[in-house]
Each structure stands twice: as structure tokens, then as C-alpha cells.
């Protein structure tokens, strides 16, 4: 197991980062710090996914042969948008000569980032409201107030 940990040290680091984020969520009592922990935890999971999709010696999954974004690559390769109509379907195999990284994890993580920020926004809005009604954003204080309320049945 230990030799494997060193061979795949990318994954090892990513796991340590995930653990750290998760620890911040669980251990801190401050509502904002918890959300920071959650954010770190989620970002580390993104790192895991992107690491899965990395291909050694690969390139970003933007097909360079097909179309030149800046004009530098406009070599013998056909300009896809212009030449597409003439090239019969199935005739063009651009991927065989260039190695690309796996695009699927990238897509998944783009979605996950958005989900993460959505959760964060709701969490922070809740925090602000909690601060207004409880006067604190420390979990201990909030639990104490609620506990007293449950015991006495009245506020204050």
C-alpha cells in the first residue's frame, strides 16, 4: 500500500486535501468557516476528477488540427468550419495523431463548480439570517439558545 501511495502521489495529495477540507467542516463551530471547509472539500474533489482525466503528454481537449483559434495553427490541416461540408462524414480522424486529455471529467466538474457556488450562496444567506435572529454564528451559542428554548418553552 505504501509504495502505491508514493507512486500515485498525485492522488495521495488530493486525498489529503479532501480530508483537510472535510475536517474543517466537521470540526469548526463557526458557520462561515464551515462553509469555507465545504468549499475546500469540494475543490479537492474537483482536483480528484481532473486528475483522473489527465493523460500524460496530452493536450487540452481543444482540437488543434480542426480550427485555428489564433491563426498560428492554420497549417495544412483543413479549416473545419469551411471544409466540413466537403469532407464526408467519418472521413476525418483528427484525434489519432494528437493526444488529448479526457474531456468528460472537465465537463462534470464545470457542472459541479456551479453547484458548489449555488450551495455556498444559500449557505451564506442562511448564515446572515441566523446572525440576525440568533445574534451569533457560532454553533455552540445557537445550540445553547435552542436548548434553553426547548427546556423553558419561552424565549429570553
Amino acid at each position: 500500500m505504501f509504495s502505491a501511495i508514493f507512486e500515485n502521489f498525485h492522488y495521495t495529495i488530493v486525498i489529503i486535501l479532501m480530508m483537510t477540507g472535510l475536517y474543517v467542516v466537521f470540526s469548526s463551530g463557526n458557520l462561515i468557516k464551515k462553509l469555507v471547509g465545504l468549499s475546500v472539500f469540494q475543490t479537492s474533489v474537483f482536483l480528484l476528477y481532473i486528475s483522473i482525466g489527465k493523460v500524460r503528454g496530452g493536450q487540452p481537449p481543444i482540437l488543434v488540427d480542426d480550427h485555428s483559434s489564433g491563426g498560428e495553427h492554420a497549417s495544412a490541416a483543413t479549416n473545419l468550419l469551411a471544409g466540413a461540408a466537403e469532407v464526408p462524414a467519418g472521413g476525418a480522424h483528427h484525434a489519432s495523431d494528437v493526444l488529448y486529455s479526457n474531456p468528460l471529467p472537465h465537463v462534470l466538474i464545470l457542472t459541479a463548480i456551479v453547484v458548489g457556488v449555488a450551495t455556498l450562496a444559500i449557505g451564506l444567506a442562511l448564515t446572515v439570517r441566523i446572525r440576525e435572529v440568533y445574534g451569533s454564528i457560532e454553533e455552540d451559542v445557537i445550540n445553547e439558545i435552542d436548548y434553553r428554548y426547548n427546556l423553558e418553552g419561552t424565549d429570553s
Partner: peptide
Amino acid sequence: PANQYVGMNYIDQTAEEIHIPNVV
């Protein structure tokens, strides 16, 4: 397995089916 199957199919087929360079 992750870099062999569905993910790489996108690289191969995007050029034909969607005609845009950015596979993502």
C-alpha cells in the same frame, strides 16, 4: 478505463457530429 472509453469517444466524434473544436 476512464481514458479509453466514453471520454475519448467524444474526442473522436465531436469533429464529425458537432463541428466545433472545443470538445468540452
